[in-house]
Each structure stands twice: as C-alpha cells, then as structure tokens.
Design a protein around this nucleic acid. Sequence first.
RNA 1: GCCGACGUAGCUCAGCUGGUAGAGCAGCGGUUUCGUAAACCGCAGGUCACGGGUUCGAAUCCCGUCGUCGGCUCCA
Length: 676
Amino acid sequence: MYLHSVIPRRKSLRSREWNGGETATWTGGPTRRASGRERVKSLTRMSDDRKSLEERAQMTDIERLRHSASHVLATAILKIWPEAQFAAGPPVENGFYYDVDLPHRISPEDFENIEAEMKKEIKANHPFERLEVSRDEALALGKKGRLAALDERSAPSKYKLDIIENIPPDEKISLYRNGDFIDLCAGPHVMRTGNIGAFKLTTVASAYYKGDEKNPQLQRVYGTAFKTKKELDDYFAMLEEAKKRDHRKLGKELELFVFDDDVGPGLPMFLPRAAVIAEELEKLAKETEFAAGYQRVRTPHIARESLYKKSGHLPYYSDSMFPPMTLAEDVEALKRDALKRESGETASTVQPFNASTKYYLKAMNCPHHHKLFAALPRSYRDLPLRLAEYGTCYRYEKSGELFGLMRVRSLQMNDAHLYMTPDQFEAEFNAVNEMYLNYFKLFGIDKYLMRFSTHDPSKLGQKFVDEPELWKRTEEMTRSVLKNSGINYVEVPNEAAFYGPKIDVQAWSVIGREFSIATNQVDFAQPRSFDLRYKDRDNIDKIPICIHRAPLGTHERFIGFLIEHYAGNFPLWLSPEQVRILTIGDDPKLIDYARSILRELRAHQVRAEIDESSDKINGKIQRAEQMKVHTMFVIGKRDMEADAVSVRVHGKGNLGPKLRGEAIAEILQSIKERRT
RNA sequence: GCCGACGUAGCUCAGCUGGUAGAGCAGCGGUUUCGUAAACCGCAGGUCACGGGUUCGAAUCCCGUCGUCGGCUCCA
C-alpha cells in the first residue's frame, strides 16, 4: 500500500552519508542520478556515517573533472556577479552543479555569458593548487568573504563558514585555488582548468541549503562536462533517446492516457489502449493470487473519519489525504442527538464513537480490509487469510510532486492484506517476495533494488508507533527471512511505515527518476488498533500479524513504468492492439476475406482491428508501425487465394506469408504463454 | 508546498523588438486500387490556458489564477 512512495532523495544517501560535514559533499561517493546498479553499490554503504578524506580522494577521473568544472562555474559567476555566495558544488551522476545565493535570478539566458567566462578560465589553463590551512586561517578567510570568491569582500562567505563549523576537529582543512578563485574544498581536482575538455550548462533549479526546507533556497546551476566534445555530444544524443521513451510522450503518441484540467491534476484517465493493459495486468494478478490462495474482496472508495482514526492513519497522514466531505444528514443527526441528550431523552441510534460527520476518500485499502477480517469470527484454522482487491485510492500528492503516471492522485493498487500467525510469517513473507521476483522475470525487469526499511528508535511515538519491543521483533524476523532466502537487499534506517518494517522495490524511469514499483510490508500495529483477533489452538484470542503487499504496484505507476521499460513496444499479450489487418486495395471480395479473419481473431478475444482506408499499403503500414501495433496481417489477392496472410511484426518487419490458421494459432499461443 | 521556465488547431511546432493567427500530420469530402514505413486534390478546424491591466491597438508588455515541465522538499 505504500507503493506510491518515492524514495526521498535528500535522505536517500548523500546527506545521510555526509551527515555532520557537508564540506566535501562532492567528493567521491554515490551520485544523485546514479543508475540502478551504481545505486545498489552506493546504498550498501549507507551505514557508513562519514567518509574519510582518503575515501573522498578516490573520486573517479570524470568526477574529478566535473568537480573542477563546478569550480570554474563558480569562478565565472563571480566574474559577472562578485557578490555571489556559494554553498556546495559536487559532481553528480551526469554532471555537476554549484549552489549559489545571488539576488539576480540566473536564467538559461545567462548561460551564454557564464559559459563564455568559463571558457576564458579554461583557456587561461590555471593550475588547481591545494593549500592546507588551520581552522582559524580558514575561518579568517571566510569572515573576509575570501572563500568561494575572487577577492576579499565586505560580506563574509557565510555558507562556507557554516561548512567549516561542521568539519570534525581532527580533520584537515584544505583550500583549492584556480586563478583568483579560492574555495574551501577537500578536492581532488584535475591538474589545470584546461583539462576540462567539453562542458555545457544545462539547467538552473532551486535547492534548499543542505536540503532542509527551513534553510534558504539557493539557485542550483547544473552543467555537465566530459573529457572530449564527442563524449559531450554523445551524452546529449543519449538524452534525446531517453526522452523518446518517456512515458508521458509515448502516452500521448500511442493514445494511452490523458490528463484534463477539468478533471484535475494528477488524475489520469485511461484511454481504451491503456485500459486494456490494466485489464491484462489484473488478469495476471488474479490468476497468480488465486493460485496462491488469495480471496478477492471489494470495498467502497470512501469511509468515515472514525475508520482512519482507528487505523492510526489520520495523525500521520491526513496531509496526504483529500480533505474530508461532510454529509448534511449526519450533521443533522448529530444535532438531534445532542438536543435529546440535553433534554434528558434517550440518545439517538447514532453511536457517539462513530458519530463522525466527515467522510474521507480512501488513501489506502488496509482499514477496509481489517474490517473485513473483523467481520467474521476467525480461528487459527482460517489463517493465513489473504484478502485481495484492486483497490482505488486517492492521495493528495503535492502539486510539485506529480509526475505523469508515476506520481498521481488517483491510483488503483494491486493490493492485498495477509493475516497470519507468527509461525506462518516466514513462509508468507517469502511467498510474497517470490511473487515479485516471478513477475519481474515475466516482464524482464532486471534493474531494481530491494530496500528493507527499518525504524529509528528515536522517533518512536512520532513517525513510528511506540512499540519498541514489537519493532525489534518484527525487524529481526524480517531480516532473518531476507537473509535465509538469499535475496539481495539493502537496509535503510528510518524509512519504515509507521506500523512496521517494509521492503519496497525501487526502479528508475528512463529519465532517472526513482520510484517504488512494489512493496511488502509488515504490520503489527493496525491489527492491535483494530482489535483483530483469532482463536488459537489453546482457545486463547490472539492478534494476527498482517502483511500489506502490492507486487504490481499501482496500475498508474506500473503501466507508466512498462511503457518506458518496453519503449512502447509491448509484448503481444500486453499490446493494446495485437493485430491489425491491412488490406491491399478495396476489392469487395478481399474486404470480405479480411473481415472474416477479423471476426475469427475477435472470437478468440484477440484485440484486432482492420484498416480498410483508401491509403496505399505503404501508408497503412506506416500508420500501424507508428502506433507500434504488434502484428500486422497484410492481405492482398495472392493471400486470399492461398487462404493465407502475410505477417509483419513491429520491429521485425515482413515475415512473409503464412496459412491463415497457422498465423492465428501462433498469435493465440503467444498470448496464452504471455511470451515476451 | 517552494524556486525557475513554459502554456498558439487533436498532435508537433512557426509567428522578429505590440498592428486583431500560419504550416505539416491527424480529421472530413473526393480522386487513386496501391504487395511491406507517407498517393493526389479540396474542405474544415484556434475567445493564442483563463482573468484583469497598460495601449489607438496585445498571442506578443505587466499582474493574478490554473496547468505542465525542471529541480528542491514530501510521500501511507
């Protein structure tokens, strides 16, 4: 149920690693938009509190070059705006940035000027000189405004001073100088500014100092740099390619989904071509879950406030829920109730506890499912009980967080809640993990990261339910299940759900945004707050453990992900339009033949269309190819006479004629097997 | 939510420093009868996101709102 969570970048690794010393945020270490594999590597190091200077010195050549480019960027900005104050300027996965505090709002129009200054600095080929100084010397320079500056200034280098404060006392402090520019910096750098081969400024955005909302917003100027012009050009060409796979672009081109202002931001509507994909995914989930002993349930989209009070969601998450609606008749009932109480009459039938006038759109399905668990007396013989629903939820994601289909406000989840005894936990938890892995295999997803999120004991009672013992026990239980099953995972502290530890599976969109596509969560808190019980063998009422899981995430996000994963070239079983019949000419007999094939395909539930337009065959093929129709049956007189079709497959071209029966049989077989 | 950029026909985009909108594709109507990635002709289509303001005159300048995008922050 949490799959809508996207890993908070700020917390994801860097700031945690550099906690206590932003000085050298840029040195070595994981980079912001690391690819999946790189991230796996870097996340495994998350437990390290801080890097040693030696570790920082292990910056790769390209990071060194980009870090140097960020100094050159700062140099250039100072040439134009000497009063600029700088914070941090690290290399990141695809380039570098420098955070600058400046009254002038830097816009892309300024890039040309800044780049011109940068080129001058590179042409001057100044050496990068390292200088170790005492803390006092560094502070003195900072106070004179001489850090991240070309000269002494009236205003102190405030961010640099703050950074010095955070350098551990036993650590050496170093400065780097290129030309007139001196910066507080742990390095390392390339030898000379001239070693920066090719660079380009890309964008400017804002960022809070040290990533903290309470700190001032700085302007973050992004750029990228490479050893050679060719590498730079290749990089931009690669970006263009990635843009072509962007699900928002393909979603439009392939007529998959739309957003509409009158419907609202973050509320996608699925056109038939995407609805079909959603239905195929549901079919898959239902088959899989049926075989795994799940039972399907259905619950409403809204519930009274009391439900979310009971579940404990409200205090933690009301900000992320749509505001409640009030029903006039409930208000009236409450008023009548109050009047009767005052006048000493018997209270109305409205129970005080449930007498809420507010209704919420549900942001999660678990409370409804817990109510279904509680609806019947449960025995240990009923467990594990697995309640599944493609539940529709609404979450009020902040406007700036919306992102195509990946981050939306209405979502349909492949949700289920599993209730079990402690003895059953390991097997159930493992089975859920197995389910993901099987799905990933089916879709050919191999770039993902399993994250095991645990709680931070210092936040018990705030971010996490105050049950220290239960936290400890379930986390140990989960960790041991993970270890025993040999699944690769990384542990991330302080990111658990409020009710228990969780695993989520992280993936990346083509443009590098990270998000969870699946989740598996332990819940020991809600069964208590809902007073869920089962009668055990020993005739004692016990509280079940609950697992929340959503291996296919939400339709919205999973389909968004699949669009990019397949670049719109869906396998036949998922393909919005599986077969298009293209006739050569419009001879009535030929049309009849083509239509009979269409009828046969549809009778077998194949999503088939026919193009009878007056376009030439090349035109019809072009249109079908552009829509990425999986298979084309090209039919002319020759085919008709041989009771055949000419098969053309998107991405494979013309496969030649096949007997009609054979061609259809192959299609059916491929769909049945969900071939990739 | 915050900072910045952007918002012209269904789609992709043009429209210089203000003089009441234009192309290609898609759509529709014809003609064409074509064997593996675009046949030809014509027609229609826009309160230039919305609301104010400046101006004789605003798609163009200013302000606000909404939305999208890029970041930041957040995310059950």
